[in-house]
Simulated scan of single mutants.
Amino acid sequence: MAVTIAQLAEIEEEEEPRWGGSVVGHRTVPRDRFNGYRMLYADYFADEPVYGDDVFRRWFRMPKAMFIDICHGVAESIPYFQRTSNAAGLPGFSTIQKVTTAIRKLAYGGSADRLDKYIRMGESTILETVSKFTRTIVEKYGHIYLRQPNAQDIARLLHIAKEQGFPGMLGSIDCMHWEWEKCPTALHGQYRGHHKIPTIILEAVASADLWIWHTFFGNARVVQQYKRASPITCVRQHI
């Protein structure tokens, strides 16, 4: 791996781009993407990484094994997540750089270009990566994780809940406020309650194994009406 990184870095430093971009006047920023790859690899993926598995789980919100499985999965699904050469003939970003960018953006939010200094990736590429990542995840794993519970799932969930002292419960329901940063000014009154900023409410139902079976976004009034009309209401009665 070290030899490969050194070779790629040498190619980027010595080879001059054959053209300066397709847009007249466009300036290409030499971000040194391989330095970003070296830092990322040394921090988390080397044989003796700087940060251990406990730090990886806290910062990436998942175990390292799951992250690597996702990398393999998205790389097998579409060529975008495979390392390829760009229009100038230089190797592009690695799979772990793109997946790290997407997961960090989804997990922590914030402006897209704040990842530039560490991953060495521009804002437009970051936004493109997040879009392709989310679509690929839905296409690849949607039939497993974005489905309604079947008879076997319901029987298993009821059995687990009964053993925990909650007979008849499918899962635990909870709600939280998410800040709506781009809320139109005309809607501030509808989406601002005891919080001083506009928020929307996320309602979620999860089982004991942290499998999320139900999610719903809306304001407080819509969520209350939805609960009264939804079969999920029966879950709350057993909590």
Rank of each mutant, 00 (worst) to 15 (best):
W19Y: 10
W180F: 05
R33F: 00
G89N: 07
Y191C: 03
Y80I: 00
Y191L: 01
V235W: 08
T4C: 12
K227A: 10
P49D: 05
Y191Q: 10
T84N: 12
S230D: 14
H177N: 06
R114D: 09
P17I: 03
M1E: 08
L157N: 05
H194D: 06
D32P: 03
R104Y: 06
P63K: 05
M66I: 12
L127T: 10
E76K: 10
R228W: 06
V29Q: 15
I119T: 00
A155V: 09
A229S: 13
A75W: 02
E139R: 06
F45G: 02
R58G: 03
E16C: 08
D113I: 06
A75I: 02
K98S: 01
A87I: 11
T84Y: 00
K162S: 15
K64R: 15
G110S: 09
I144K: 11
E163V: 07
Y80D: 01
W180P: 04
Y141R: 05
R221A: 14
T95W: 11
L202Y: 09
V74L: 00
L115E: 14
H159C: 12
I5T: 11
I173A: 09
R83I: 07
A6D: 15
I173N: 03
F133G: 00
T101K: 01
M169Y: 04
H26N: 13
E16R: 13
V222E: 15
A6V: 09
I144P: 01
K64W: 00
I126E: 10
G165T: 03
R236P: 01
A155I: 03
R236L: 14
T101Q: 06
T95D: 08
M66L: 13
Y191W: 10
E12S: 09
F60H: 02
S111R: 08
F81A: 05
T4E: 15
G193T: 05
K196S: 15
G73N: 01
A42G: 12
V23T: 11
Y191S: 06
G20I: 03
I68K: 14
Y44D: 10
Q97R: 08
Q82I: 02
V205I: 14
S94Q: 15
M121W: 02
I144M: 07
A208L: 13
T199K: 10
I173P: 07
Y191K: 09
A220Y: 06
E203T: 14
S111D: 11
F216W: 06
F60R: 01
F166L: 09
L210Y: 13
G109C: 11
L170K: 05
G52Q: 04
T136S: 13
W180R: 01
T101E: 10
P63L: 02
S85T: 09
Y41E: 09
S172I: 13
P30G: 04
V223Q: 15
I212D: 04
A208V: 08
V99L: 08
W180C: 06
I173H: 02
I154S: 02
I5E: 11
W213C: 04
R228Y: 11
L157D: 11
Q224R: 15
A208M: 07
E163F: 07
G21E: 03
